[in-house]
């Protein structure tokens, strides 16, 4: 690894665009995520968050623009990059007919861990995320929160340098969320970078040091949390101010 690669931002996105049919889901996005940063990527529904994270994960190809992860260009160095990132994707990437331990072991082996190591780490992670009470339970029998915990446990198994997380706290109960937050903060303290999307603004406000907000495929804010929250504004106030006018609940005649 060269020095340039080692000191490069964890994520560097330049003029990223993704067009579906006639609509640009992501339109000329540019931002950087420094290493060791807890980065929150926010936006209203349909703003382009998931499309962006799918392009970062390599699940979708950009129409134009460039992506660098850990100083390496995507997609030309994608195999090396993939080995160094941990993913908490949406639920579709879980294998429902595997038990939690089997799934985590599978992911470990896909990251090139020795089978014995993967199995041992899977067992330990299962215990850490409190999923070990019913080891034979299949993922399709898990609750939504348990599925998220299993996905996060799998993301940790190869000790990645960068985490890409799509709504990691969705459906997770308070105890589980506390556990996950502690683990993630521990990873950041050890030098890892976390990029997450979430609609739970309170969690983002508490965890993230830097925020980007996207609306209608374009970046409308990208700064440190403290700079973003001027005075006594909450993140929710900032978010609503930036992504659109406050809508009043209209009353339907028949409702």
């Amino acid at each position: 690894m060269t020095d340039g690669v080692g000191s490069a931002p964890a994520i560097r996105v330049r003029n990223l665009t993704k067009v579906y049919g006639a609509k640009a889901a992501v339109n000329g996005l540019s931002f950087e995520v420094p290493r060791g940063c807890f980065f929150g990527f926010l936006g209203p529904n349909g703003a382009g968050k998931t499309t962006t994270i799918r392009m970062l994960m390599g699940l979708a190809a950009p129409t134009s623009g460039s992506i660098e992860l850990l100083g390496l260009p995507v997609p030309s160095a994608s195999v090396e990059i993939k080995g160094r990132i941990g993913l908490v994707p949406d639920e579709s990437l879980l294998f429902d007919h595997l038990s939690g331990a089997e799934f985590i072991e599978f992911v470990g082996r896909m990251y090139g861990l020795d089978r014995g190591v993967a199995r041992e780490r899977a067992r330990e992670l299962l215990a850490l995320f409190e999923l070990d009470s019913q080891p034979r339970k299949l993922i399709n029998e898990y609750s939504k929160g348990m599925r998220k915990r299993a996905a996060m446990a799998a993301a940790l198994i190869h000790r990645p340098q960068l985490f890409l997380m799509d709504e990691p706290f969705e459906g997770v109960d308070a105890v589980g969320a506390r556990l996950m937050k502690e683990i993630l903060l521990g990873q950041v303290q050890q030098g890892a970078t976390i990029f997450l999307t979430s609609h739970v603004l309170e969690v983002v406000e508490r965890l993230c040091t830097r925020i980007a907000i996207i609306s209608d495929g374009r970046l409308v804010a990208d700064s440190d949390m403290a700079e973003l929250r001027e005075g006594s504004e909450t993140l929710e106030d900032v978010f609503v101010r930036l992504v659109g006018v406050e809508r009043q609940a209209e009353t339907l005649g028949w409702l």
Binding site: H97, S99, F106, R109, M110, G112
Partner: peptide
Amino acid sequence: VPQARAILWAQVRTLWNFY
């Protein structure tokens, strides 16, 4: 390769768990 073995292993487990 190890990853191919992992995929085959996961598929066998999947089929076993299903059927």
